[in-house]
Design a protein around this nucleic acid. Structure first.
Lengths: 330, 330
DNA sequence: TTGTATGCGTTATCAG
DNA sequence: CTGATAACGCATACAA
């Protein structure tokens, strides 16, 4: 592999001049620039990023951490981030934490060691205090997930509003008995609390209260959805509608409901979250709350690059629109 | 960020000794080893990978390139690779080529610059000659996709057999008019030729021939599947069964078929490929050909690590089992 | 406008 | 068993 010295030798110039050409510095005569460029091409030269990193400064590489890449929501989010970054000349390194605190920290270590300029976190597993320690080594941006204090730039959606819209929609369809199914917990402070709030707000506006038996926490997959449906079927007092935190879970509920010969939405109305491809695959098609994945990716990269160019940037949060998509399941 | 000198200073030893401890070299007394370990912990020291890379040798990082991460088959393949690598103490950097030759080469450049020890390619966009040029800088392994010559280790499936099983199954169900839908081309040499061969073999064994009008090439998504179905509906002479190269496309066909009030499998039988989650989500559930994604990931990492430890390893190919899963769509 | 010398953090070589 | 030193490839301060 050719290095900068080889290029210098072949072009008959110094390493410094070559370096200047590589980095588009001024004060290089056009003639010599040509010479260098020619030599670079001839040798198939690529600057060695490890050396550049070691030396300091930028890597034009951005890390993205997702909990699970097999989750279609995160796959499409990663996709949109990657495309946006590529347009701006940045490479993207992806890693999945598998919801494991250790792995999350291992990936953040890339910052410490300057392998990436910044990291976009789409989920956060450790306490913020843990993660904050890494922010002095590089830029951290939260996209999708978030923390309560305004201590780091965040790209987020008004989850409260999204859940509110969904719940209200069910109420307007005449439902009085609505179950709630979340990937997080159902309390004031845990994961997914915004959605909880939005949901409860819609209910309390019309004087409704949720039956605690109809709350399902920590549900993520199609399989989880099927299990939820089975549990509901065994209840004496069944809900007539289900609000879920993911299209996957909603899809599972629909599949199992049909298996049990329930008619949707007549016997049971279901609403999803995310507007993933599965929403249009299941039959009946899923009413859901759309998260604007493409915008999230683009905004993340935009803000990340801004952060990199200006390390002392003021911390700002960005909120993207969230929207109810009505299909056949409600 | 603490470096090796800091550790040396704090422990009162030389950088060399610290380095020896880090790399588990022999000839370090237990006492000094303890000392170093303690200092490392105290400073929260992590060796700087850029420096290690620059110096040469291994990075314990493996790259994986996929065409599109939003394709669930590749997402799950990446997932299984990542899990297997993590078990072995390797980090995985993922990148998507988006079926773009340039991007593929850009990622291969990570080899040239020693940012990764090896790259697992799950798809190959450029001609092999192009890619081969990079193999002198690091290990390249093909998983899923492949080339004809035995010039690089490959983890592959007997696609010919898979397609053969699928086609034969349709024939055994009594179908005489079978359409063929592929993500590649339909010729002797192009993408997907193995499946073509397997498909044709099954047909010719019973003296059948495919109607050229029933061949659909370059089909990938659910949306593509819907379009295929629409085209079929406009035909005078319609097939009674469709063989597809992906569960996504098969799913799209099913959705559109139901939209048009066809009964599956009575009016039309459909068979998918991959056994992705969608296969059990659509209604009726999809008969499909299972690709053993988990095994592919594990075997890839196993072979890759073997390659890294022994650069002059003999090139071998590995074939994994492929299997027909019969559900409701046939 | 160009070149020389230095150091980034690590590990291999060689000398004790 | 331990340590001093050079080298990996690059970019910058400084000198010319």
């Amino acid at each position: 592999m050719a290095n900068i010295s080889d290029v210098a030798k072949l072009s008959g110039l110094s390493k410094t001049t070559v370096s200047r050409v590589i980095n588009n510095h001024p004060y290089v005569s056009d003639k010599k620039r040509e010479l260098v460029l020619k030599a670079m091409k001839e040798l198939g030269y690529t600057p060695n990023p490890s050396a550049r990193r070691l030396r300091g400064q930028l890597t034009t590489t951005i890390g993205v951490i997702v909990p699970k890449i097999v989750n279609p929501f995160f796959a499409s989010l990663v996709n949109s981030i990657e495309l946006a970054a590529y347009k701006k000349g940045h490479q993207v390194l992806i890693s999945q934490s598998n919801e494991d605190k250790e792995k999350e920290l291992a990936f953040l270590n890339l910052l410490k060691t300057k392998q990436v300029d910044g990291i976009i976190m789409t989920s956060i597993e450790n306490d913020w205090e843990m993660i904050e320690a890494y922010s002095k080594y590089g830029s951290i941006l939260l996209c999708n997930d978030y923390v309560d204090q305004e201590v780091v730039p965040m790209i987020r959606l008004d989850q409260t509003k999204g859940a509110y819209l969904g719940a209200k929609h069910l109420i307007e369809r005449g439902h009085q008995k609505i179950a709630y199914c979340t990937g997080g917990l159902f309390d004031e402070h845990g994961k997914g609390k915004d959605r909880n709030q939005g949901f409860q707000k819609a209910l309390s506006e019309v004087g409704m209260k949720i039956n605690p038996k109809w709350i399902f926490v920590d549900q993520h997959t199609v399989e989880d959805g099927k299990q939820v449906m089975k549990q509901i079927l065994e209840m004496d007092d069944r809900p007539t509608a289900i609000f879920t935190g993911s299209d996957e879970v909603a899809g599972g509920i629909i599949i199992e409901a049909k298996e049990q010969h329930l008619t949707i939405p007549n016997d049971l109305a279901i609403i999803g979250f995310d507007d993933q491809p599965i929403a249009e695959i299941v039959d009946p098609k899923l009413t859901t709350i759309r998260q604007p994945v493409d915008q999230m990716g683009e905004k993340s990269i935009e803000v990340m690059i801004e952060m990199l160019e200006n390390r002392e940037m003021k911390i700002k949060n960005y909120e993207l629109p969230i929207e109810l998509i009505i299909r056949q399941s409600t």
